[in-house]
Computed example of a mutant assay.
Amino acid sequence: MSEEFNYFRDRNIGKLFDLVLQVSNELHVTHQRLHAMEALLVRHGVLSAGELSALEPTEEEQRILDEQRDRVIARLMRIVTESGPAEHPLRDQWESTLQKTG
């Protein structure tokens, strides 16, 4: 990172900000593509307008959605609460996960 763009005076904060911007961009692209897919499904008569937003999942579908959400939150919290030196963050967690699956 060049000094002229070093707004935060901390290289790690700059990297984190770059990461957040990249993830935000990926989320935006995914949102746009999902919207386009829904629009095409409506145009081709597969869905009616608003049908996707009005969907009420079955108990099983909701259970799966909840499990997926919980896994994503757990991964994010693991990153936030990681331990170990910067050279190998999450090493303790990684080794623990490998032992559970091995």
Results as ranks from 00 to 15, higher is better:
Asn6Arg: 15
Glu38Tyr: 03
Thr81Phe: 14
Gly45Ala: 04
Arg71Asn: 07
Gly102His: 05
Asp92Gly: 09
Val20Ala: 13
Ala74Lys: 08
Pro85Phe: 05
His28Leu: 15
Leu55Gln: 05
Arg71Gly: 01
Leu41Ser: 02
Gln22Cys: 06
Val46Pro: 01
Lys100Glu: 15
Ile73Arg: 14
Arg78Pro: 00
His88Ser: 05
Ile13Arg: 04
Glu61Val: 03
Pro57Cys: 02
Ala54Phe: 03
Ser96Met: 10
Gly84Val: 01
Leu41Gly: 01
Glu67Pro: 00
Thr81Gln: 15
Lys100Val: 14
Met1Leu: 09
Leu90Ile: 01
Ile73Gly: 02
Ile79Gln: 07
Phe8Thr: 10
Asn12Thr: 14
Met37Val: 07
Val72Ser: 06
Ile13Asn: 05
Ser53Arg: 07
Arg71Cys: 08
Gln93Thr: 09
Leu34Met: 14
Gly102Arg: 15
Asn6Val: 01
Arg71Asp: 13
Leu90Gln: 02
Pro89Asn: 03
Pro89Glu: 04
Ser2Gly: 11
Leu98Ile: 12
Gln22Lys: 06
Glu3Ala: 13
Leu27Gly: 01
Ser53Trp: 04
Ile73Asp: 04
Glu61Trp: 03
Ser24Phe: 08
Ser2Lys: 02
His44Ile: 10
His28Met: 11
Leu65Ile: 15
Glu95Met: 12
Glu61Pro: 00
Val23Leu: 10
Met77Asp: 09
Val42Ile: 12
Leu47Met: 05
Arg43Asn: 14
Arg71Pro: 01
Glu51Phe: 03
Arg11Met: 09
Ser96Asn: 12
Leu47Gly: 01
Leu21Ile: 10
Glu26His: 10
Glu95Gly: 03
Glu59Tyr: 03
Glu3Trp: 08
Tyr7Ile: 04
Gln99Pro: 00
Leu21His: 11
Arg91Thr: 04
Glu3Met: 08
Asp70Asn: 11
Leu52Glu: 10
His35Thr: 11
Ser2His: 09
Gly102Cys: 05
Ile64Arg: 12
Pro57Phe: 01
Trp94Ile: 08
Glu59Trp: 09
Leu40Gln: 08
Arg11Gly: 02
Gly14Thr: 05
Ala49His: 06
Asp70Gln: 12
Ser2Arg: 07
Lys15Tyr: 08
Asp92Gln: 11
Leu76Gln: 12
Leu34Lys: 06
Met77Phe: 06
Arg75Ile: 10
Leu76Met: 14
Asn25Trp: 11
Ala54Thr: 10
Arg91Leu: 11
Gly50Asp: 00
Glu67Lys: 06
Glu51Asp: 14
Thr97Cys: 10
Gly50Leu: 02
Gln62Lys: 15
Met1Tyr: 05
Ser48Glu: 15
Ala36Met: 04
Leu21Glu: 13
Val23Ile: 15
Val46Ala: 15
Thr30Asp: 14
Leu52Arg: 14
Gln68Met: 06
Arg11Tyr: 09
